[in-house]
Design a protein around this nucleic acid. Sequence first.
DNA 1: TAAAATTTTAACAAAATGTAAATTCAACGT
DNA 2: ACGTTGAATTTACATTTTGTTAAAATTTTA
Lengths: 222, 222
Amino acid sequence: MKTILIIDDDEDIREIISYNLTKEGYTVLKAKNGVEGIKKAKKHNPGLILLDVMMPEMDGIEVCEILRADELTKDIKICFLTARSEDYSQIAGFDAGADDYVNKPVKPKVLSSRIKAILRRDSGANVIESNSNERIVINRDKYQLLIHGQPIHLPRKEFELLALLASKPGDVFEREVILQTVWGSEIVVGDRTIDVHIRKLREKIGNDSIKTVKGIGYKFTP
Amino acid sequence: MKTILIIDDDEDIREIISYNLTKEGYTVLKAKNGVEGIKKAKKHNPGLILLDVMMPEMDGIEVCEILRADELTKDIKICFLTARSEDYSQIAGFDAGADDYVNKPVKPKVLSSRIKAILRRDSGANVIESNSNERIVINRDKYQLLIHGQPIHLPRKEFELLALLASKPGDVFEREVILQTVWGSEIVVGDRTIDVHIRKLREKIGNDSIKTVKGIGYKFTP
DNA sequence: TAAAATTTTAACAAAATGTAAATTCAACGT
DNA sequence: ACGTTGAATTTACATTTTGTTAAAATTTTA
């Protein structure tokens, strides 16, 4: 489900967005109007559609309604590209069944994080739950960790770290991988940094959940 | 509810709009002044009224107020037709209970998409309410905030900001996303701007509702 | 047991946020 | 058109929270 369809009448916008999303590893399809967009949506079944609201002939709302009405396309996530907030298109968009909206002009970072959020929503990755008797819930949208229903505050890095480990319970994450994911590829921080964060996590969520695999890395087991 | 009533003293405008809307499949009624318009509104109960602001004898604002005061017509959507961007008439229009406004000269495409947006909007659809025992009601249409039923005045930005946060209670909104939604991404504002607005909001609606999630953003929790 | 790897501590650095006050800006009434 | 007013934004710090490091202590492994 890494395919994204852009429906926008403005070629520049299509290209800019496409360029950025491709760089992020998505497969990108483009359509320059509603009719073409609907056709491609049916044919390729993308995971997400970025849909311009203001288009000549058939506006985004209408496209959205048509997509929602069709069995083939009704479950595809739709994110509107709206002019700006004064406009009622946002509200109308939600009525029409949009999953989210992003204002134009679009900043790549914002778009990308919204897209991730939307795609996360149905993959279930948003809420990571360990086995039922333990009751650890990680909710990315709320940036919140619940242990036995008790909300626990985690600073950013700790949260990201835990989210990563918990994303595949039982799997070992090498230190390199952790650095890459939580800290980012360019940033150079010392090796100990991970350890310290691990320790803080253990303090907060109990010592047993995170195990160290000497020489390799860490793993999270509920 | 596909009937639209046009109230405008200018025959040409009535005809042009009428022509376009008929083509779109609406049933169109016409009236050349306020008195006639009100009469037809009561008789035919249209789904929407396009109302010229500037008319001799009885201006649109007045017509609007009368329609809003009458049980028979008070729920009819009203969209003002205003000459150029006289912000004054827009504001006055909203005060009088308008649902939207469109500037003249009217572009068919714009008008048509606005109309769709208005008709799609169900009254009350965008009242954001915190949980029932709490008492924060945000009404986007009326640009109004009620706390314990008391109306509280919020300036535009503060209102938009609160509305955004409250739109998904508990979810964290990243600063980037807030900027993009409330300010729009062309405009570059300083780093502290969000904080200051948050602070003002907290002053007005109480310190506890808006929580900051350091490194990420803010969230609203009732 | 020595070597290697990890954990812990505590001190410090860096980043993010909060605040008050000043400034800029734009709408509105006159 | 002009001044008033309130809103929006910036400024300049204060404050708080987070992140990092270096070094010592501890544990593991060979």
